[in-house]
Write a protein that binds this DNA or RNA. Structure first.
Lengths: 148, 148
DNA sequence: ACTTGAACTTGGAACGATTCTAAGTCTCTT
DNA sequence: AAGAGACTTAGAATCGTTCCAAGTTCAAGT
């Protein structure tokens, strides 16, 4: 559900970063917020087209960049795969399920983030940390049912 | 310096993975081992050509894949940049220097790796962890000289 | 040694995600 | 209402990587 509050917040963040609020950016923002997955630019494009059929892919890229720039969404870069976009602004890791291709968010406690920063030698100044896992997810019932 | 020991090790690892040892794979392996940086496939291609001018880029990709498959080198995937290859087989993180584009290895203590695995919810089975930092490196003399 | 099939190499074509370009539109400011 | 600059659009261009078809090499069995 689209709220005025969200769109006002969007407009403020955009103008604060020297960018303009446009209908396209609003729709793209709502689409990324609307579903708790990690869509690619192409997937965002498909979802946006139902609300705004004339939008172009280049504009979707432009809007996603603008939202990343002003800190409203995050860009998740996978291995040799299209970038994905994520509305979860908490510091978190990503788990790439190799079987399904899905990405799941994994919380990171604050003290662990601090410890990661402490790994760095003197003089190294990290502006961002990327932690990602790659593997598979077993269904929970299989876990409880299994014999061993 | 190319040693027979290294090439024998290479041949063994390759055949163990059902792959063949070829002159191209030996040269590519030596090139990646020969310099402690993180070259792209294109850079490996350039370096290999002096020893083997007729090699093709497709073969370099093939060789790098083969070496990654049998565990002799690692592939480092950066954000929207060409893959890089790394002969450091210890579990380690990468620091991407945004100013120079260079990648530096950062050690990770074993207990921290265990703790990272423990972040995952029940049923999540990670086969690999990727930890990378992004930022800048200050020169050490600037650190010791500075006033504050 | 000879054959056969699979693995490998090669150059070039193809691919796919992203970025660029040029033209047109919108919107702030004056 | 005019000018400047930001934005959108469609399509072309880019670039790392993979695919393809043809030729070569290798290992194993006769």
């Amino acid at each position: 559900m689209i709220t005025d509050t969200q769109n006002t917040a969007l407009a403020q963040r955009l103008t604060h970063s020297g960018l303009r609020s446009t209908p396209q950016r609003e729709v793209v923002y709502q689409v990324v917020l609307g579903k708790r997955d990690h869509p690619t630019a192409e997937e965002v494009f498909d979802r946006v087209k139902s609300a705004m059929p004339t939008i172009s892919l280049a504009t979707v890229y432009n809007c996603l960049d603008a939202l990343v720039q002003c800190g409203l969404i995050k860009q998740v870069n996978s291995v040799r795969e299209p970038s994905r976009y994520c509305p979860n602004l908490h510091e978190h890791a990503h788990f790439h399920d190799e079987a399904t291709g899905e990405i799941h968010d994994v919380d990171i406690p604050a003290d662990l983030i601090a410890r990661l920063h402490n790994l760095l030698p003197k003089g190294y100044d990290a502006v961002s940390i990327d932690l990602s896992f790659r593997g598979s997810v077993r269904a929970l019932h299989a876990l409880t049912d299994q014999q061993n």
